[in-house]
Nucleic acid binder design. Sequence first.
DNA 1: GTTGAGCTTCCCATGATGGGAAGATTTAGC
DNA 2: GCTAAATCTTCCCATCATGGGAAGCTCAAC
Lengths: 131, 131
Amino acid sequence: MNIGAAAQASGVSAKMIRHYEAIGLLPPPARRDNSYRDYGEPEVHELRFIGRARKLGFSMAEIGALLALWRDRGRPSREVRQLAVRHLADLEQRIAELRGMAATLAQLVECCHGDARPDCPILDELGGAPR
Amino acid sequence: MNIGAAAQASGVSAKMIRHYEAIGLLPPPARRDNSYRDYGEPEVHELRFIGRARKLGFSMAEIGALLALWRDRGRPSREVRQLAVRHLADLEQRIAELRGMAATLAQLVECCHGDARPDCPILDELGGAPR
DNA sequence: GTTGAGCTTCCCATGATGGGAAGATTTAGC
DNA sequence: GCTAAATCTTCCCATCATGGGAAGCTCAAC
């Protein structure tokens, strides 16, 4: 299977497949005589794994660890869970940060009449005196 | 005021002040005889503005627009509000995405016993058959 | 007057993704 | 069988905001 077909089958772009290989996340695949990369079902399976983990927001480093655990038939599920719990906390923190921003901004937006007049609580807040 | 003092006074690092200048967000400041950048209160004021806008998650491009509106005494508040509303929608979308990830992950974490045994719903989900 | 702190510019790195060029090869249409 | 289009290869560059660090100049303090 060429890289294009593997991309199609896994939902990971060819560009990204090469990239994951370049950063060592994936082992170099077999090559055909024409130097084209050659993938089989197991490789596509790993690619799909990576794609799913990305969709859950895991970083490349975390995915590397997850892949290693996945390949290790005897891994303790504790390690997987710990990794996931840490990532979950990270997600929650990012959500909290964004929510803080959104809350402040929503309040400002609500106070701004938003017409042709120049006075604007949003700019006042941004340019206001140091608190 | 040297760049270090301006950084101190505004809460924006010297590194970032130079960067904002380099990308054209800020006009080149006055220079002393020793070629040191020289800042006054107005410049520090703008830097604080930028810092606050960053804390609300605005992009550099958006901050450029906000700065232009701020400098324009006759701007219609409508434009400021529109910009803020758009950014707010962007924030909400990012929050929704992260929440989706967190919800899925939380569910998986809950299902994983997380002990010495190797079976793990988290890895099962990531490596499962295409849905 | 030496030393340490602060300033200058310039280059490089991050993390995940993509665009695009130049060149080789395969595939499809006729 | 020939030509054109698609696909592959590698390599470089861009994003976005931030920072690290080097090499060299300048300033302040003791």
